Simulated scan of single mutants.
Amino acid sequence: MNYQIITQSAELATVCQKARNVDAVMLDTEFVRTRTFYPQLGLIQLFDGETLSLIDPLEIDDMTAFVELLKDTSVMKVLHACGEDLEVFFNSFGCLPQPMVDTQIMAAFLGNGLSTGFAALVEANLGVALDKSESRTDWMARPLTQKQLDYAAADVYYLKPLYEKLLAQVEQAGWWQAAQQECALIASKRIKTVDADNAYLEIKGAWQLRPKALAILKPLATWRYKEAVRRDLALNFVFKENDLLTVARLGIQNRHQMEQEGVDPRSAQRHSARIISLVKAAKATPVDQYPETIERLMDKPGYKQLFKVLKDEVKKASDSSGLATEFLASKKQLNSIISWVWKRQRDQDKLPDVMQGWRLELLGEKLNKHIK
């Protein structure tokens, strides 16, 4: 397994131009995301079938050649479990690889579980046992060790024969078009603009609060989100979610009470003045401007019975198609179609996953008929 380390823009341009002459390239990234809001890109692996390159984005000033490769629609980009990689590409370069296919998705269309790992697929399909001991390494540290480099290179070196084997099987099974649809769906979900003003709706447990407390939580959550983006810090490293709920629920207006109620003392010390100011302003919100109570789908009458009926329908589709139930329709996807009917009156501009693409005929139309 020979590979080269790319640290210069000129080298990158040569490698990427060569890669644009083949039908498909293998891609992977190594990144770190422990305390930061955005993933920190540490390494990019690129294999065009002949040349395996480990691209160091920390050393290269101009990544234009790589961005042009990502955007080149004549070259298929092959990844495995691509969700976070797509986020890395979008945050780092403002684009996604187009077109793209994910071998984890391809494997799911062959009856594998939706979250089957790369090492498990390589061993099952190629008979090679990969060393995954470097998966938790610090990819921002330099220099990278020989073991780290070998590990990173193996992820794209074995991706090529795995992709070729899965492609033949997926095409034979008649699922190739569906696999491409599914990968496009995954990619579309990775480009999402967050409305900072509605960040409170993403906080677990917010549904337990009454409108008066939600009026406090809303500006607090907006502040925390904007602060996280500004400082590139994970949300809970700005202010813990549970602490935010505590402050909102009790309407806390002094630092001593924050600490009495178990709020992280370091966060209280750093942010108490800002939070107290936000709480005081929120308490002056007129009652008619309070946010509405957050109504959970599962609390609506008839939800449990309906969900069971839909799950039974998914099981039937699983038995007939050979696809895993969680791949056909996860709990989140089933809730999405229920919400689409109950809350959005079947809005054709906001179709849920099961009402589009390959799922529609296989499952979606049947599910839709059950929801009144």
Rank of each mutant, 00 (worst) to 15 (best):
D85R: 10
L110W: 15
A329Q: 12
Y38C: 03
R20V: 01
A196S: 09
V170S: 12
T293C: 01
S188V: 00
A268E: 11
I338Q: 08
Q17K: 11
C82H: 04
W342P: 02
V32Y: 10
W207K: 04
P161A: 07
D131H: 12
N198H: 02
T64L: 15
A173P: 00
T34C: 05
I191L: 01
N112M: 10
K304V: 02
S321G: 07
G357Q: 04
S320W: 02
C95Y: 04
L328H: 02
A153V: 14
L121D: 09
R230S: 06
Q180W: 00
V128L: 12
T222N: 05
T73N: 10
D195W: 05
T145F: 11
A173C: 03
V88W: 00
A13C: 11
V156L: 14
R346C: 12
A268R: 14
I337M: 02
K283G: 08
D232R: 01
V32R: 09
K189G: 01
Q257S: 06
D62N: 14
Q146F: 01
Q4D: 08
D61F: 06
F47T: 08
I216V: 11
E326P: 15
A196P: 01
S321E: 13
A178I: 11
S330C: 09
M258G: 11
E171L: 07
V263P: 12
F47Q: 14
S336W: 02
